[in-house]
Structure formats: structure tokens, C-alpha cells
């Protein structure tokens, strides 16, 4: 440690600069590939992969999926079985995906996924760490399911203040639980007034046509020019 005067140098750069640079490169790569990209964040067991199975049923090869998990390729297998090409990232321990992981995955996956119009990146199940990492997506979505409780939004404000879409999942269980989807929605709007909200059930299909329309319209808007 210094005992005398030292020279101060101004830096003024975000700590996440390097990730953000790779994310920007991903964003232009997805643009060049004709892809509309969605980063789906949610707790383990929220129903992220079940949602992707439902989207795979709807979009088939128009959808490509990058799965993030600590271990196993179980989720990629489920999505492929449902009809869409999928690539599994096994982080080996990391609790989130970063832009460089997604970049490497897409480089390996893009031939298999050629012709896809939509890319969904399923982040590692976690409401904390994934919130800070831009992956180059067009839309950041959080999936919260009713059995998790209706008090989760304000417990994880870093995530819910950044999202474009809130998906309230497992709505088919509404009558069996005390959780109130109105509370989830209003607390999310208090952090993110412009958030788009869908109440869905991957089991019954509730809300999925509307979410699929949102994805289709999002891609149309992105490439309309």
C-alpha cells in the first residue's frame, strides 16, 4: 500500500464492459442470422423447459434453443424431442450464462439451427446472477410460477427491474394456491412500468397463443426496414 501521494486516473467504465462487448457482437450476429432472441430467466422448477417444449410444438424448426444448466443435457433432449433443434451448455458450476458462453455455443450450433427464426436461450435456474449478464438478446423475460409464491418480485429487484416480459406460469394451479398473480404483476410494474405480462400454463396452453404472437410480432418489427 502506498504511503505518499499517488496519481489518480479516471476510468469510468462499467465492470461488465467485456461481457457487454461480447453481447453486442452476439446481437449483431443474431441480426445477421435473421434471429429474434429471447433470454428466459427463472428459478429451478419454474417451468422454463416445459414452456420451451410448448414453443417447440408450435414453432418446430423455426425455433432454436440454447439450454443452460450446471450439468446434463436433459433439457436439450426434451426440447429436441418436442421438435426444435437444441444445444446444451453445461456450465460445470457457474450459476448463470454469460455472453461468451452463448457466443461459443451459437458458433457450434448454427449449422444445426440453420433457417431458424427465433432463438430462445434458457438461462441456468436462478433469479440472481443471470440478471447482470446481457447475452445479446432482443428480449429479457422472467418466468415466475405461482407455486413459488407471489412475493418474489421485490425480493429480486435487480432482475425484475431489467426485464421486458414477465411470464406468470402454472396458472392452471391458481385455484389450488394462495398466490395472487395480480400482486406479481403490480409489483413488477412498480419496478418496470413498461413490462409486458403474460399469464400462461404450459400444461393447458393458457396464454401461449398470445406469447407466440408477441414473439412473431417482435421478429417482424426487428426485421421490418
Amino acid at each position: 500500500m502506498s504511503g505518499g501521494p499517488s496519481r489518480r486516473v479516471s476510468i469510468e467504465k462499467p465492470v461488465m464492459t467485456r461481457n457487454d462487448e461480447v453481447a453486442a457482437a452476439n446481437r449483431s450476429m443474431f441480426l445477421d442470422s435473421g434471429l429474434f432472441a429471447i433470454n428466459v430467466i427463472g428459478s429451478p422448477g419454474a417451468g422454463k423447459t416445459s414452456l420451451l417444449e410448448a414453443l417447440a410444438n408450435r414453432f418446430a424448426r423455426d425455433l432454436a434453443v440454447i439450454e443452460g444448466d450446471v450439468r446434463t443435457r436433459r433439457d436439450a433432449d426434451r426440447v429436441e424431442k418436442a421438435g426444435s433443434p437444441a444445444w446444451q451448455i453445461e456450465t460445470g458450476g457457474a450459476c448463470h450464462l454469460d455472453a461468451a458462453m452463448v457466443r461459443r455455443a451459437w458458433m457450434d450450433f448454427r449449422e444445426t439451427a440453420r433457417g431458424s427464426r427465433y432463438l430462445v436461450i434458457e438461462n441456468v435456474g436462478n433469479l440472481i446472477c443471470p440478471s447482470s449478464y446481457d447475452l445479446g438478446e432482443d428480449v429479457k423475460a422472467a418466468l415466475v410460477s405461482l407455486p413459488e409464491g407471489d412475493d418474489k418480485v421485490l425480493k429480486y429487484p435487480a432482475l425484475f427491474s431489467r426485464i421486458d416480459v414477465l411470464l406468470i406460469g402454472k396458472m392452471d394451479l391458481l385455484n389450488h394456491l394462495d398466490a395472487d398473480p395480480d400482486r406479481l404483476e403490480s409489483e413488477c410494474r412498480s419496478l418496470r412500468p413498461g413490462v409486458t405480462v403474460f399469464r400462461i400454463s404450459s400444461k393447458t396452453g393458457l396464454g401461449l397463443p398470445e406469447f407466440c404472437d408477441f414473439i412473431i410480432r417482435g421478429r417482424e418489427a426487428k426485421f421490418r426496414a
Binding site: S2, R8, V9, S10, I11, P14
Partner: peptide, 11 residues
């Protein structure tokens, strides 16, 4: 979360 500045040791 921003790196504002650094100070380089005088030595």
C-alpha cells in the same frame, strides 16, 4: 457498477 478511477502507487 462502474470502475470510476484508480490510483497508481507513487513509488
Amino acid at each position: 457498477c462502474t470502475v470510476e478511477s484508480v490510483e497508481i502507487e507513487d513509488r
